[in-house]
Design a protein around this nucleic acid. Structure first.
Lengths: 222, 222
DNA sequence: GTATACATACATCCAAGAACGTATGTATAG
DNA sequence: CTATACATACGTTCTTGGATGTATGTATAC
């Protein structure tokens, strides 16, 4: 085998990333050798070194390929002209959760990120990428919740910072917990309930919604 | 150097675990060699192989040393004769969060578990250990919440299974998120607020507290 | 009390394999 | 013809597990 067309070369690159995803998921990133990935992809290490600098570069490419479709989703919710921003937001959150359950590739990448890779000084740029992803997401969420307040869907006294933090907590916690023990609850079926529970917290929990706003009759403190 | 007393040997063992904790945290578990750990501990690899079977055994010992004090804490809350089980429970949760912020060793172990180790088929027993830890914790929480219902501190209609899941989600999410971006919020100061927010959810959120119980005047659905 | 016998607690040394990065070969697309 | 898209071959570096050496603690016999 030798030189192929540009399209075929691009295909090879994708195959390598596919293979890396499978091998990383099976053996963990550290214990996966480039030879393992090459074998899984049906090429030799030479091909990998042609397309990528090293294993970390393959890993980064895998994350990048996964990040783009996810970020595209979040664009819809933060449109200021959307008349039901909270509804769009709710749909988005539910779809992320259900997609993780239903799409094996999506799920694999999350499992790799949570359980099958190590972030160290060596992989600092990757850690930064994940952190930026969190911060970017936080900014988007902040805008979306701001729109929801404008439309009267959330109390004006909402503690935005805490609402964003609590969203990260809830989504990260849900995915981490379910991926650890997929049998402990039915995430696909209960996704909407968990999201609605979060939204209810934004409206009625005094430490997030703001003191005095919409407090239920019984009071909230012990 | 040669044979030392039993006490000194035990000290050496602890030093090795201390060293492993530091090295694992600095380089990640996979990239840490037994030589790295030995150097950090001021011994040779021979000493490590005397006390432990291999690197994974060191890792397991590190987790074990960390698990015991944490489990001891949770015993207090689930005593049926406790008159304020929910209060004890609240104290426990807050202390776990604040301990993670304040105790560097505690924090290091969590950071290693979340970000600096890989769970694979190879390390299946460790993964199982973590899973069992979750399940055991869930059972304890279930008993504690049951006591709180007995005492009228939580609604009798409480969906216990979801309450336990939501607790795992909340605590795991909080620790994971804060350890990823310690600057994004002040966990030490806000720990009580987050815990109270969770408890409020148990009381007033219809998808967890049970339909119809304590629903605030505005209703909860969009 | 002390000599003996053995277990303990390491240090040192060695052989083997794995994985990496690079250098080089090669056939084909452009 | 030349750059491309790989395959192949090679040398080097780490790490591991175990084998071996050794000096001391400790229990027992006398």
């Amino acid at each position: 085998m030798a030189r192929r067309t540009k399209e075929e070369a691009q295909e090879t690159r994708e195959q390598i990333i596919d293979a890396a995803e499978l091998v990383f998921h099976r053996k963990g990133v550290a214990r996966s050798s480039l030879n393992d990935i090459a074998q899984q992809a049906g090429v030799t290490r030479g091909a990998i070194y042609w397309h990528f600098k090293n294993k970390q570069d393959v890993f980064a490419a895998m994350l990048e390929r996964h990040r783009l479709p996810t970020e595209a989703l979040s664009q819809r919710a933060e449109d200021p002209s959307e008349s039901d921003p909270l509804g769009r937001f709710r749909d988005l959150l539910i779809s992320v959760l259900q997609r993780t359950v239903r799409d094996p590739g999506h799920r694999r990448v999350f499992e790799i990120l949570f359980y099958k890779c190590e972030f160290t000084d060596q992989t600092a740029p990757l850690m930064q990428r994940v952190q930026e992803s969190y911060l970017d997401g936080g900014a988007k969420v902040r805008r979306t919740l701001g729109n929801a307040i404008e439309r009267g869907q959330l109390p004006a006294t909402l503690n935005l910072g805490r609402a964003v933090t609590q969203l990260h907590v809830q989504m990260t916690g849900l995915l981490y917990t379910w991926l650890l023990l997929p049998g402990s609850f039915d995430l696909d079926r209960e996704a909407a309930d968990f999201v609605d529970s979060y939204i209810a917290t934004l409206r009625y929990c005094p430490t997030i919604a703001g003191e005095g706003a919409h407090t239920p009759p019984g009071g909230l403190d012990p």
